[in-house]
Design a protein around this nucleic acid. Structure first.
Lengths: 237, 237
DNA sequence: TTGACTTTCAAACGATTGTTTCATACAGTT
DNA sequence: AACTGTATGAAACAATCGTTTGAAAGTCAA
């Protein structure tokens, strides 16, 4: 094992200073360009389907740049995931940003209406983490645990509280948990997908109005489903 | 392009006769062993994550055997998909096997209760096509179109008719289409998945009773959702 | 100017992939 | 026995992958 020339952390140490122009235009640091290109490509096709050479070509950097600045390909990927998680942590998660004392039905409606556009659409910074999440579902990496803990679980907790309040039971009740899965399943189903494009031709919501209509359906459909669970006995076999 | 020694179709011509023992025990034809090993491995990890060498090692065949008997890796994969589709076409699709004049609610219940075990479980021949389907959703190949046409679309049509009958409208109604997606989404969400295992620890139904209970939830939840659509105006913006 | 440090570059390395080559062995026919 | 079509095996091929190398060029402080 040969010792590497330069520890990874040193690159961040040198990044504070302003830089003089080099032979070619280094207006943006190589590290930033790599992160930008990698974010876009990883979000598009996931970790394994993107090659280091492709990222470096897009970022106008040498192939060795990834190894130099991020240790290896996985290091670059984890950096992308890290900044995506930071973005979502900084900007208050819109899916849970609701005034206090809101009725549980309206909280659920708000969740679906703010969640669905992020799943269907492709532009925007907050959409990055959702695209990464979708690929992590198919082929998880080390990032899966982070995403679950920092994004998924808080959202599910938000849903569980609202649903439990609606039914009038504990948040640990099986009916609550299964209803959370039902809502989450319906939302995630609208994620763009080449397979589903063939199975449901033209059924993907195209414009904002269609997304809103689909969200309304999921909310109506699910709220009716949850209400029907109120009359049901909790301890069924 | 060099002409291949032996056209692919010739292998099936020679397979009718009984064979004398060779140096090693060729009790089963190489073609069959390759198909068996490939079915298991492709179902487990999808097309791209399985190597030809791995299949051949498992089938106790030479690496060149795939090229010889199936033209290439994709040819072997399509053969696997073909036999899986044939199996599902031969054995009447249980998800749609229901006596005539059954009430639409009961048809939907039957669909969910027979569909969900096939999604959750792993053993059995009919489960093969479902495992292949799940991988096709993540990374579609040529097989996606076949699976959609021969498996997905007939099932969705079964659901559409039942739901339209419940609501009392046309099968092309948006409410019908969205309800089909809601039911299908909830069912598919129970597919085993390493990512979901972390997000929903212990929430995957373990035994038959748990699967039945989950199916009952999906049916109850969805039927209530559909009933609520009856009172809604069809032509909403 | 010297020397230490940081960053970039072209090239190569080592591993793995799907696929092909060519020799060989077998069965059946003439 | 000789020939033909079928099948298998070890080895190699060609392409691609992530990663490493070693030299070169730059910056900055002494």
């Amino acid at each position: 094992m040969t010792a590497r020339r330069q520890p990874i952390s040193a690159s961040s140490r040198a990044r504070g200073r302003a830089r003089i122009a080099r032979v070619s235009e280094p207006d943006v640091e190589t590290t930033s360009r790599l992160l930008a290109s990698a974010s876009r490509l990883f979000a598009e096709r996931g970790f394994e389907k993107v090659t280091v050479r492709e990222i470096c070509h897009d970022a106008k950097a040498n192939v060795a740049a990834v190894s130099y600045h991020f240790r290896d390909k996985l290091g670059l990927y984890m950096a992308v995931v890290g900044t995506a998680l930071e973005t979502i942590r900084r900007a208050h998660d819109a899916t849970m940003d609701v005034p206090a004392n809101t009725a549980p039905e309206d909280r659920i409606r708000h969740y679906v209406h703010s969640y669905l556009p992020r799943i269907v659409r492709s532009e925007g910074k907050t959409e990055l983490i959702h695209k990464l999440m979708r690929h992590e579902m198919a082929e998880p990496t080390q990032a899966a645990r982070l995403i679950v803990e920092q994004v998924i679980l808080p959202r599910l907790d938000f849903l569980r509280r609202a649903i439990a309040e609606m039914i009038g039971c504990d948040t640990e009740d099986v009916r609550v948990i299964r209803s959370v899965m039902s809502i989450q399943a319906q939302c995630l189903f609208y994620a763009p997908d080449r397979f589903k494009s063939a199975a449901f031709p033209g059924w993907e919501p195209a414009d904002d109005a269609a997304i809103e209509a689909a969200a309304k359906h999921i909310a109506d459909f699910s709220l009716a489903g949850i209400r029907s669970l109120r009359t049901e006995h909790a301890g069924r076999a």
